[in-house]
């Protein structure tokens, strides 16, 4: 037994998924192999139509690939027994794009309790879970409010709490920051990083905002259904040509670093942190 080996949370082997649209086939995900280790913070990048949402929905069995296999902690998502399906869904919690379309109750704590209720969790433990989940996203004081009056960022934090109450090991966020303003996005990013760091929850964040992967442990870029990049965010930022070819754009700091680097100045092109870039520029003089 090797103790250093990280546990595999999700493993996807050669998965493909095609939608049939008006007789024409649309190959959304094309032979992708990807494995996500426990404790990672993975940002899955790609433009609209790159297949990233389809890939996300395969991670908890909402979609089952037509080819290849997805395994979540030893369970294959193609397994059709209820027990396995619900175990996978409770293990890999999924948050969607529009917070308004994933809340089922008019009071926040009732919404958070919905998952545990479905799983048949005993009342005392459920109350504890609802409390923990709302505290983890900093929304406990709003528990008896109605979600209608919350800001976008607050709503999305509640949506995260609603999934957390099922005690998942992995959180998959399918473009959950796309509709938020910068303040809301920052709130959600802070919560995700804290959950990853303190609660050890594996995070898979699907987005087209490249700046959201600056603090991630790993960046994966999807382009036309295929993996175009899989590695450290730093090396992705350093390769502007690749970023552009995938329809993405460097975050401003990396853009400045790249422009300076292209001028032949001694600057690390992959820099995405403002302070770090400032230091490097100061050393140029």
């Amino acid at each position: 037994m090797c103790y250093n080996m990280p546990m595999q949370a999700i493993s996807m082997q050669n998965v493909s998924y095609r939608y049939a649209v008006d007789d024409a086939d649309l190959l959304a995900v094309d032979r992708v192999s990807l494995s996500i280790e426990e404790g990672e913070f993975v940002v899955l990048l790609g433009t609209n139509g790159s297949g990233k949402s389809t890939l996300a929905k395969m991670m908890n069995g909402l979609l089952v690939p037509q080819e290849g296999q997805v395994v979540v902690y030893g369970d294959a998502t193609s397994d059709e027994t209820d027990e396995v399906i619900f175990r996978i869904r409770a293990t890999v919690g999924m948050v969607f794009q529009n917070p308004d379309n994933q809340m089922v109750a008019s009071i926040i704590e009732d919404d958070v309790a919905f998952g545990p209720e479905n799983l048949g969790i005993a009342h005392d433990e459920m109350v504890e879970r609802v409390r923990w989940a709302l505290e983890s996203v900093g929304m406990y004081e709003y528990r008896s409010h109605t979600p209608t009056k919350l800001s976008g960022g607050q709503k999305q934090r509640v949506a995260i709490a609603s999934v957390l109450a099922m005690r998942p090991k992995v959180l998959v966020l399918d473009e959950s920051t796309a509709m938020l303003d910068p303040v809301g996005r920052a709130e959600v990013m802070r919560v995700l990083h804290r959950l990853n760091r303190e609660a050890g929850i594996t995070v898979v964040l699907i987005t087209h905002h490249m700046d959201e992967c600056t603090e991630a442990s790993r960046a994966v870029v999807l382009n036309r259904g295929r993996v175009a990049y899989d590695g450290k965010p730093h090396d992705l930022f350093a390769d502007e040509a690749l970023v552009a070819s995938c329809g993405l754009e460097l975050p401003p700091v990396a853009k400045i670093a790249t422009l300076l680097g292209d001028m032949g100045l001694k600057v690390d092109k992959g820099t995405s942190d403002l302070d770090a870039l400032y230091e490097q520029i100061c050393r140029l003089k």
Binding site: T47, N48, H208, G247
Partner: peptide, 10 residues
């Protein structure tokens, strides 16, 4: 540009 990807935004 709300909700668009970088190319769409530009």
């Amino acid at each position: 540009t709300a909700g668009l990807d970088p190319v769409g935004r530009r």
